[in-house]
Design a protein around this nucleic acid. Structure first.
Length: 390
DNA sequence: AAGACGGGGCA
DNA sequence: TGCCCAGTCTT
């Protein structure tokens, strides 16, 4: 039985120096003519580039723009960020998702900000040593802010390169990714690494889009194997992913003297570090009952409650689960009972004070069921500065 | 190698 | 609905 010959990891895309220069030149010319005017492209300040790159992780440009502006207004320098409390940072991040990004950004700010004057990392390896900075972000910052000749590979560039080389295997498989990183480095224009990386991303976002790529207007169409073969719609191939399971939970809005108990979630896991109602997962939607709520509250808070009343349910979709949350309002049974929450922090807040804490979208939906006053307070994006943090 | 980790935009 | 987005970290 003849064994299949071991496949040498041939270059993904053989490209002669002459053709590479043509590609670089066409791409950069297109980029300098057509690039969108984005706030973080008006500067090469490492702080702003860094903040933008972290915000842009798995998050679309349109979503990031207003957050970027507000974040820079609240924390104009790395020192101001380092000096801020985690709640101030999370408040500025609230609604953006992937909150570990905010915690890592804050932690890295305290690391870099320790030196005086601030000594910024310059090469990609030094950047990647910081929390929340992976291979992509390190390369993006080092190339954009410090002209380091290092290629970046993100979702956009992965799609562009997979089409350029007509990669027929799943592009998100680790082995294929490794080859795409090499291809990216091979194509990079070392004379303009920041613009080159951004140009590939811009091309992926504007022309080489996931569906219906605009090959007619693509500056790289002459170099694209997928377009030549008519495969641009079929590439990249993705591995199927598991559907998010449906889960149920219940939340307790425990009222006392017109205030409600909010807890800060623990340092790890879903929505870590954010504030919200005491909440617990239930086996099924039918288990979200008043009796179950009474049983659940004690281990959550150390309190005993009475007269639970269902206020309604809210639905929320996470990446990996679809949640149906039933919210109960209830009263404190023993007003002298001591709060012994396993949560690190707890606070009794009037609805008007809800906006003083960083909340997830899930908790904002849940708290909105408490009434018009709560809904009004939650419309404020952030609390008045004076109200934030005692 | 696979999963956890948010939220919004779009066909 | 399902897929995608300027990914990173943990197991």
């Amino acid at each position: 039985m003849p064994r299949p010959a071991p496949r040498t990891p041939a270059a993904l895309l053989a490209i002669a120096p002459v053709e590479r220069r043509r590609l670089q030149s066409r791409l950069l010319r297109w980029y300098r003519r057509c690039a969108r005017d984005l706030p973080w492209r008006r500067t090469r300040d490492p702080y702003q580039v860094w903040v933008s790159e972290v915000m842009l992780q798995q998050t679309q440009v349109r979503t990031v723009e207003p957050y970027f502006q507000r974040f820079l207004a609240a924390f104009p320098t790395i020192r101001r960020l380092a000096a801020a409390s985690i709640d101030q940072v999370l408040l500025a991040w609230q609604g953006l998702g992937y909150y570990s990004r905010a915690r890592n950004l804050h932690e890295a700010a305290t690391i870099i900000g320790r030196t005086r004057p601030v000594r910024w990392p310059t090469d990609a390896d030094a950047w990647q040593a910081l929390p929340g900075v992976g291979r992509y972000t390190a390369a993006a910052i080092a190339s954009i802010a410090f002209d380091q000749p290092v290629a970046a590979l993100d979702g956009n560039i992965r799609r562009v390169l997979a089409r350029l080389a007509a990669v027929r295997e799943p592009a998100d498989a680790p082995a294929v990714q490794a080859r795409l990183w090499r291809l990216a480095q091979n194509l990079l224009d070392p004379a303009a690494p920041g613009d080159f990386n951004q140009a590939l991303m811009e091309l992926g976002a504007r022309v080489c889009t996931p569906r219906a790529p605009a090959c007619r207007t693509c500056p790289l169409r002459a170099h694209c194997r997928a377009a030549r073969a008519g495969l641009q719609q079929a590439i990249p191939v993705r591995r199927p992913r598991r559907a998010a399971p449906q889960v149920s939970a219940l939340a307790a809005a425990i009222r006392h003297d017109g205030r409600y108990l909010l807890l800060r979630r623990g340092p790890r896991g879903l929505l870590a570090g954010l504030w919200g109602l005491p909440m617990v997962e239930t086996p099924g939607p039918c288990d979200a009952t008043a009796a179950a709520l009474r049983r659940a509250v004690r281990p959550l808070t150390g309190l005993r409650v009475r007269s639970p009343r269902a206020l309604g349910t809210v639905s929320h979709v996470f990446t990996h689960r679809k949640l149906t949350l039933t919210v109960f309002e209830c009263a404190l049974a023993d007003r002298r009972a001591a709060l012994s929450a396993p949560a690190p922090e707890a606070a009794w807040l009037a609805p008007a004070e809800f906006a003083t804490r960083p909340l997830s979208e899930l908790d904002r939906k849940a708290l909105a069921l408490l009434g018009a006053e709560a809904r009004h307070a939650l419309q404020q994006r952030t609390a008045p500065a004076a109200a934030v943090l005692a």
